[in-house]
Amino acid sequence: MASDKHKPEILAAEVVAESRLFKIESLDLRFSNGVERTYERMKPSGRHAVLVVPVTAQGDLLLVREYAAGTDRYELGFPKGLIDPGESASEAANRELKEEIGFGARELRPLKEVVLAPSYFSSKMTLFLARDLYPESLAGDEPEPLEIVRWPLSQAEELVTHLDFAEARSITALFLALRVLHSEE
């Protein structure tokens, strides 16, 4: 098993494509056995994100349905967003809850830090479980109002088979949240 001390040497790094949101970087690498290869990745931005599984006192999960350009359809998932400069992950999680579902959380429990596709992206996302919700809204940056969907926690495992609930990060967060909730019963 290779350790970080045997990471490939970066011989050259160059931005080969750029858009308003993304920069694609080409990396010329030399591995510890002398083999050289060129890899491409999204250039690290240093900004990370959060995703929150909110659970109401009535035992409902709160999800949002919003348009996703990548799939060109409306997707059902948990509130999420980027961490703003100077903001902690838990502060960002609470802000995103207020912007997307109109609730804050007195209890935010980190579940896990995940990476979407480590071969291409370095950005991390911290998954949270949010409880003890209270009404509070902040203006968000979404181009249209988000549809809030209440889903009974007792039927959470059925959510995984729902056609619109397909985002891997939301599915991962749901299973991690259920593990915590079941361990407290």
Rank of each mutant, 00 (worst) to 15 (best):
L11G: 00
V15Q: 00
V15Y: 04
V16W: 04
E18G: 02
E18W: 13
R20P: 03
L21V: 10
K23Q: 10
E25P: 02
L29K: 07
L29F: 05
R30H: 02
R30Y: 02
N33I: 04
N33F: 10
V35K: 13
T38Q: 13
T38I: 07
R41P: 01
M42N: 01
S45F: 03
S45M: 05
S45C: 02
S45Q: 06
R47W: 12
H48M: 09
A49Q: 12
V50E: 07
L51F: 07
L51A: 15
V52D: 07
A57W: 00
A57P: 00
L62P: 06
E66D: 13
E66A: 15
A68N: 10
A69E: 09
T71E: 03
T71Q: 01
D72Y: 12
Y74K: 06
Y74S: 05
E75F: 12
P85Y: 12
G86T: 13
S90L: 12
A92T: 07
R95W: 15
L97T: 03
L97F: 06
E99K: 13
G102W: 09
G102V: 05
F103C: 03
F103T: 02
G104S: 07
A105T: 15
A105V: 12
R109S: 03
P110N: 10
L116C: 01
P118E: 04
Y120R: 11
S122H: 09
S123V: 00
K124E: 00
M125K: 03
L127F: 01
L127W: 02
